[in-house]
Design a protein around this nucleic acid. Structure first.
Length: 804
RNA sequence: GCCGGGCUGGCGGAACGGUAGACGCGGCGGUCUCAAAAACCGUUGGGCGCAAGCCCGUGAGGGUUCGACUCCCUCGCCCGGCACCA
């Protein structure tokens, strides 16, 4: 019998169950929030508890975040790692409707199932601090935040063009409309004009943009946010109007240098006050035209448009130009109207062609009879500006406009205000009472929460009103201000409002008289690291930044940004495609956890590829991890030596340095590769009876964040007291971690010819001498004199010689 | 169209401008076994060669450099974001 056979094999089921129970009993994952010396708030995106349960992608995401938290904890930080559930919203509600069970009864069940599964993945969640957004103790404070925003003038009830999803029977925020379709159900949205609640995120467009520079975030996400805010610098130009009730119209352009080529004006067909721009005798016709327009199409039709009969006065020439309306201009962006310069804008060019409007070249460089020229050039047909390069002309035109009081430089943002009203049931009621005299009045804070009433029929009704409207007893209340009969707001708020502040609640869950305790919040916020999917790049992360910033301006939180450090993990796919219920390729982790145990699955998922990039889940590589853990197990239990030889100490220090660096950077795949190499060597020594206890211990410690159960068991079995997870990160000496001897590549003309082993740090001139003296090199040089020898210490010697 | 990210063995993936392919899967050969599985050992980018070794090779083509997967230019394909945004 060999030495390897003397150890009983690792039994994951028994060991993992044992430690999960033990950790639970000892409160190993409870965080002492009030006396943390080095608080580390390890936040990961809380899930929406779907009825299907956890899928393997969640395990991937949470394992990477948990491993980082465990690493910080071993380094001595007090790590707070909470978890919760984002359980309001259309998803839950639609599912409840489908199965015919009330969401208030269904959601607790789906949460229970999620918790069961999350409990199996070996993460150190501080469960007693769980946050559930549907809990009245939570949404009470969601409502409270709304009231604070309302009082600060950041929540507004106003009429506006909105996106209506005819399938979900509710309005959607602009961000929740993808290519004209509902983000959730894919139905084409319809434009409607309704009175809605908006949060004025646009007030924060510039601060939100500026602060991006200071954030340590994954670059993709920063870029996505920058695009979404869409800052555009340009010029506002006012055209006087004649022949209609509207006295003037402002237009926004980024090309003031083309002003002299403006041959008509166009008002967006969906402009809320379109008719004011039309000549009185054309109003009826224009109105008929407007209502007959089809819903916005993906491919705009430039032939659609109507002459409004009014005229604009060119601010610099006084020339009169026609005013048109067309759907290719957006009523909701900028001022909702444009000056059309067909010679230098492709869309205007097409429109002018379709309607026989004038095309006047004012920037040379193209052939505007054939197509629009959008590049730079020299200004022509532009009065005093003729002959100037276009980029030079821009500020001068702006100056001329400013002198006339007809325009000025300005900035536009693509970002829209955040529409939060939802005409649905399953959300927190917006805490407002509409009084005929006082208008919208917030529900007094001591009367929060406004509980979601029990209604029999919670189906959306599609009339533009929420199902809550039918709860008459609930709706009719006296005005809190004047006491007259008034009505409650019946819309509920967007789910993204729930998730925009949950990280503030976790540290304060036990307080029922305040949303977040001042001392706790100042100690724990902002979050130390936030790890989540890049699919939330725009929506959740933007809304959270806005809410945090608004609360900061109200003096309620210690920092303007909630997440100074954000890392996006990749997406786990299956068979080359995103996992989704409709594709039927969702992997349920339960069977894998049963079969292999949590540690193996954790390691396997982290080994698939770079955490930041995700990977393709297939189970054909799990055996590599199983073998690895078997080696760790065996060698750790057999290692009894106490050798202090330098080479093995160096190897150990090198391993610590390498693994530590990779944990810092969330590069788990390569951390695991290093540990595998080390484990192979250690296992070989264990078989020979020479393995060192110290090496085995180091390996256990380094592996602990990724494989918490097996390492805890080994720690106990090898005679240690206390948990391996508490402050046991091994020290290393960078000097020792450096190799003592290095292999130098020796090249001739950049091609590898041989290598040599030398002591690390051998100086360049000695390396050169030794390399030139190598038999292989003298032979290949064959008498040729090196023209030059490039030497990089500890790396290479490259002999540059004339080619024979 | 614009902005990101990517393209490396049969596969997943490694490589501060310095020995391309670490680590793992799979394959091949072996040990053990009646046999198989498991485990373990060896081997594994392609081509040529008995061998020493040589040549080729990181999506394609150019460039910079003593030296390029890495930097620059052009192009192709894949993924993601934005998109009548004036």
């Amino acid at each position: 019998m060999t030495a390897r056979g003397e150890v009983a094999p690792y039994d994951h089921a028994t060991v993992e169950a044992k430690w999960r129970r033990r950790w639970d009993e000892t409160g190993a994952h409870r965080t002492p929030l009030d006396d943390a010396q080095r608080p580390f708030y390890n936040l990961m995106m809380f899930p929406y508890p779907s009825a299907e349960g956890l899928h393997i992608g969640h395990v991937f995401a949470f394992t990477g975040a948990d491993a980082h938290g465990r690493y910080r904890r071993m380094r001595g930080d007090t790590v707070f790692e909470p978890m919760g559930f984002d359980a309001f919203g259309i998803h839950s509600e639609n599912y409840a409707l489908k199965v015919g069970e009330h969401p208030a009864r269904l959601v607790p069940r789906t949460i229970a199932n999620f918790r069961r599964q999350l409990g199996r993945i070996g993460a150190m969640f501080d469960w007693p601090r769980q946050v559930v957004t549907t809990d009245p103790d939570y949404y009470r404070w969601t409502q409270w935040i709304f009231v604070q925003l309302f009082k600060a003038g950041l929540a507004e009830h106003r009429e506006g063009p909105v996106n209506w999803c005819p399938s979900c029977l509710t309005v959607l925020a602009d961000e929740q409309v993808i290519d004209g379709h509902c983000e959730r159900c894919g139905t084409a949205v319809e434009p409607r004009v309704l009175k809605q609640w908006f949060l004025r995120i646009t007030e924060y467009a510039q601060p939100l943009l500026d602060a991006l520079d200071e954030l340590d975030w994954s670059e993709v996400v920063v870029t996505a946010q920058r695009n979404w805010i869409g800052r555009s610098e340009g010029t506002m130009i006012r055209f006087e109007l004649v022949g209609c009730t509207q006295p003037e119209v402002s237009v926004f352009t980024t090309r003031p240098d083309t002003l002299f080529g403006a041959t008509f004006l166009v008002v967006g067909a969906d402009h809320p006050r379109l008719l004011d721009f039309a000549a009185p005798d054309r109003r009826a016709e224009v109105d008929g035209w407007r209502v007959s327009l089809p819903a916005a199409a993906a491919d705009p039709d430039f032939s659609v448009g109507i002459d409004l009969g009014s005229q604009g006065v060119h601010p610099l020439t006084g020339e009169r130009i026609p005013v048109w309306a067309a759907p290719y201009v957006l009523g909701s962006y900028g001022t909702g109207a444009i000056m059309a310069v067909p010679a230098h804008d492709e869309r205007d060019w097409q429109f002018a062609r379709a309607h026989g409007l004038r095309i006047v070249e004012v920037i040379s460089g193209g052939n505007v009879a054939r197509e629009a020229w959008t590049g730079d050039g020299v200004m022509v047909n532009s009065g005093d500006f003729d002959g100037r390069p276009s980029d030079d002309g821009k500020p001068r035109v702006v100056e001329a406009l400013r002198a006339q009081g007809r325009g000025e430089a300005t900035v536009q943002y693509r970002l829209r205000d955040w529409l939060i009203s939802r005409q649905r049931y399953w959300g927190p009621p917006i805490p407002i009472i509409h009084c005929p005299d006082d208008g919208p009045v917030p529900v007094p804070e001591d009367q929060l929460p406004v509980l979601l009433p029990e209604v029999e029929d919670y189906r959306p009704i599609g009339t533009g009103r929420s199902p809550l409207a039918s709860a008459e007893d609930w709706v009719n209340v006296p005005c809190p201000r004047c006491g007259k009969p008034a009505r409650r707001e019946t819309d509920v708020s967007d789910t993204f409002l729930d998730s925009s502040w949950y990280y503030l609640r976790y540290p304060s869950t036990e307080f029922d008289d305040r949303p977040f305790d001042r001392e706790r919040t100042w100690r724990w916020l902002p979050v130390s690291i936030y790890i989540g999917g890049k699919e939330h790049s725009v929506l959740h992360l933007m809304y959270s930044r806005f809410i945090m910033r608004a609360l900061h301006d109200l003096g309620l939180v210690p920092a303007p940004e909630p997440f100074p450090v954000f890392r996006a993990h990749g997406l786990l796919i299956k068979d080359g495609a995103k996992m989704s219920k409709s594709r039927g390729n969702v992997v349920n982790p339960d069977e894998y956890l049963d079969r292999y145990g949590a540690d193996t699955i954790r390691l396997y998922l982290m080994f698939l590829g770079p955490y930041s990039q995700g990977g393709d889940f297939r189970d054909d590589g799990v055996s590599g991890i199983t073998r690895f853990l078997a080696r760790v197990w065996r060698s750790a239990l057999l290692a009894a030596g106490d050798g202090t030889d330098e080479s093995r100490e160096r190897r150990r220090h090198r391993l610590i340095a390498g693994v530590q660096e990779r944990y810092e950077q969330l590069r788990y795949n390569t951390a695991i590769a290093l540990m595998m190499e080390f484990a192979d060597a250690l296992d070989e020594e264990a078989a020979a009876g020479t393995a060192r206890r110290r090496d085995a211990e180091t390996l256990m410690q380094l592996l602990a964040p990724l494989a918490p159960h097996i390492t805890e068991e080994l720690w106990e079995r090898t005679g240690h007291r206390g948990s391996i997870h508490d402050g046991h990160w091994p020290e290393h000496d960078p000097e020792l971690a450096a190799a003592a001897e290095v292999t130098i590549a020796v090249q001739i003309n950049g091609k590898l010819r041989t290598t040599m082993r030398v002591p690390a740090g051998t100086p360049a001139d000695e390396l050169e001498q030794r390399a030139l003296a190598l038999p292989r090199i003298t032979e290949l040089l064959d008498g040729r004199q090196p023209r030059k020898v490039i030497v990089v210490v500890d790396r290479i010697v490259n002999v540059v010689a004339p080619t024979s």
